[in-house]
């Protein structure tokens, strides 16, 4: 089957029971996406599948035929030069990662949230991000970071964040 991951096209043949998370981590060595609960409860494994967020621990790889996947490793492809995305810069500036284990999932969830709603209210951010757990308690900083990106402080260009835009780079 064909799968586009962060703009790169892969020809893969996953066994029927393999999850998208296993495929990303074990087969493609994209270990940024984390496994925490393995049952759709924590959001650490969040990736974008054709723009929509999914828990990759609950997504069968074989069901993703032809799809576009965006993981944390694919966020930092701003235009031609690899550089950090506004969300990543905001997370650094606002100190939104302590241990960082939840961070890849948080970033992707935030990326999808802003793609859906470029100007979310605080309550919309809280609701949109409440599927991503963080034990270090970085929530106030994540909220600030998303708010700042939405306000344009880190030059958000939503169209540059969509997987299709990344796909252009791989072809």
């Amino acid at each position: 089957m064909r799968l586009t991951v962060n703009g790169r096209v892969h020809e893969l043949d996953p066994a029927p029971a393999v999850t998208l998370l296993e495929l990303l981590r074990d087969r493609l060595s994209l270990t940024g996406t984390k496994l925490v609960c393995d049952r759709g409860e924590c959001g650490a494994c969040t990736v974008q599948l054709d723009g929509e967020i999914v828990y990759s621990c609950l997504t069968l790889a074989a069901a993703c035929e032809g799809a576009d996947v965006l993981t944390v490793e694919g966020l930092a492809t701003d235009g031609k030069e690899p550089s950090l995305a506004p969300l990543q810069r905001a997370f650094i500036a606002k100190d939104a990662a302590q241990c960082g284990f939840c961070t890849p999932g948080q970033l992707i969830a935030a990326n999808a949230l802003l793609a859906r709603n470029a100007n979310p209210t605080d309550d919309e951010i809280r609701a949109g991000m409440s599927g991503n757990l963080c034990r270090c308690g970085t929530y106030p900083k994540i909220l600030e970071a998303i708010r700042a990106v939405a306000a344009g402080e880190f030059e958000l260009k939503p169209e540059a964040r969509k997987p299709e835009a990344g796909a252009a780079r791989g072809s």
Binding site: L30, T31, E73, I92, A97, T103, L107
Partner: peptide, 10 residues
């Protein structure tokens, strides 16, 4: 945080 770039890029 000096190692934040590593943590936000995977």
């Amino acid at each position: 945080r000096m190692d934040a770039p590593e943590r936000v890029t995977g």
